[in-house]
Design a binder for these strands. Structure first.
Length: 258
DNA sequence: ATGGCAGGTTGAACCTGA
């Protein structure tokens, strides 16, 4: 079972790139962020022709999340967060897997820059609302996979130049503390669990040749319930799509469940 | 210190992203 998280930076601009990825790597489930379109204009047919069902929480122009899956998903929820700006940033679904019911939660956390503005406050409040919800959900279900674009650099080795991020919304201490708070609810950072300190960038800026120079950031994550951890066989950052024509600035991160 | 790339909306210029 392969579950992917991928900030696609517009599902419509990226549809050929995404289809190529689906055909080449056949993930079972893909949690997408920044689809940048409304439900009505989501490319359902492109994915259904490849045997994926789509569940979409769209928004015009900005944000938007979706889960596409080769397996039937149940209990789709769009209401887990109290979002004061009513942006489409979270979608959840239940996946039946080996007699377990795994709750998949797909998030697109606000970026939060610049830090002296309302955008930063919004990020903090959004994360607080997520933490509150996780607290309650993890009491009811011990099998949760929380994935997506967290817009958080968990630690110094997660950026090519951490000095440049010390007062950035991706790395401010109070933001890292919120990430830590989530983990302390009973989760593991799946990438670090498998790979230790190894570099694991998932994002490279379009500008200044960041991809060619490997000036990357690790801001896309899988947090897996402790009780599911023994099922995590591997975590792969799949750099293939980032090197193609017209790529997203993020590349897929994949988790393999045994 | 600034802008650089990319996408979306809208109709050339502006917003957002990380």
């Amino acid at each position: 079972m392969i579950i992917t998280s991928w900030n696609v930076n517009s599902v419509r601009a990226r549809v050929e790139n995404i289809k190529e990825y689906l055909q080449k790597f056949s993930p079972d489930v893909v949690m997408m962020q920044e689809i940048k379109t409304q439900d009505e204009t989501f490319p359902y047919d492109d994915f259904s022709r490849l045997d994926y069902e789509s569940h979409v929480f769209g928004q015009k122009s900005y944000n938007g999340v979706a889960i596409i899956s080769k397996h039937k998903l149940e209990n789709i929820r769009l209401d887990l967060i109290k979002d004061k700006l009513k942006q489409s940033r979270i979608i959840s679904a239940e996946l039946k897997y080996k007699k377990k019911s795994i709750q998949l939660i797909n998030i697109y956390t606000p970026n939060g820059n610049p830090v002296d503005t309302e955008k930063y406050t919004y990020k903090k409040e959004w994360l607080d609302s997520l933490i509150k919800q996780l607290k309650s959900l993890s009491k009811k279900n011990e099998n949760i996979i929380l994935a997506g674009d967290f817009n958080i650099l968990p630690s110094a080795e997660d950026a090519y130049n951490i000095k440049g991020f010390e007062d950035d919304a991706l790395y401010r201490l109070e933001i890292r503390k919120k990430y830590r708070e989530m983990i302390n609810l009973g989760f593991h950072d799946a990438y670090r669990h498998i790979h230790g300190e190894k570099e694991g960038y998932t994002y490279w800026d379009y500008m200044r040749g960041a991809w060619q120079k490997n000036n990357g950031l690790r801001i896309d994550h899988f947090l897996v319930s402790n009780s599911l951890l023994n099922k995590v066989k591997n975590v792969i950052i799949n750099k293939d799509p980032r090197g193609k024509e017209k790529p997203s600035d993020h590349t897929p991160i994949e988790i393999e469940l045994a």
